[in-house]
């Protein structure tokens, strides 16, 4: 087996054998250690400096020293001081909220789809052609364009028929000259 791993590390293994080798290394600690050792040997022979065993800790320590205070993730890292999250009660809370939020979104989208289907039961003849596509694919929340920008065309139509005192002198910002 070690010969096969050596061949794989040197990129000399047959493609058909690769999958079996990968599965073996993933399920067997000894084979995985062999795989890592062969790469280490290769790095040394090529003159590539291997990473220190404390590399991860040093990186995390440097990150800790960065003056990032606004990011919630940075604050969380400071509190835990390690990437290993223990499954204590405090860390279970966000998971519980996440499940609740997901459930709420599912309920909301479901309700929207149901309401839209109910409203689309009867199509007036005048609108039948217009709404063919809409009827076949009921409106879900994700299909509706939520916008906070006032459409320029409607603003201009409003000012054309119901002008305010200022609209005579101040052109709408959306008007292109």
């Amino acid at each position: 087996m070690t010969e096969h791993i050596s061949a794989l590390a040197d990129n000399e293994s047959a493609l058909a054998d690769v999958e079996q080798l990968m599965v073996t290394m993933q399920t067997n600690n000894h084979e995985a250690e062999v795989w890592a050792r062969y790469h280490l040997i290769g790095d040394v022979m090529r003159g590539t400096a291997p990473l220190s065993q404390k590399f991860t800790q040093q990186i995390m320590s440097k990150i800790e020293q960065e003056p990032t205070v606004l990011s919630p993730n940075a604050a969380l890292t400071r509190q835990t001081s390690t990437l290993q999250y223990t499954a204590d009660a405090q860390h279970k809370m966000p998971v519980a909220w996440s499940i609740a939020a997901s459930f709420t979104v599912v309920m909301l989208v479901g309700w929207m789809v149901l309401q839209t289907q109910l409203a689309h039961d009867v199509v007036p003849a005048e609108f039948a052609q217009v709404f063919t596509a809409t009827k076949s694919t009921p409106l879900a929340l994700s299909e509706q364009a939520v916008t906070q920008v006032i459409p320029a065309a409607y603003l201009m139509a409003h000012q054309a028929s119901a002008p305010t005192a200022s609209s005579y002198y101040i052109q709408s910002a959306s008007y292109s000259e």
């Binding site: 596509a133 809409t134 509706q144 939520v146």
Partner: peptide, 16 residues
């Protein structure tokens, strides 16, 4: 001003 129009086929309705 109130504008009323049929939702065009293939166009996402505006909400906001």
């Amino acid at each position: 001003s109130l504008f009323i129009e049929p939702i065009e086929s293939g166009v996402k309705p505006r909400l906001g």
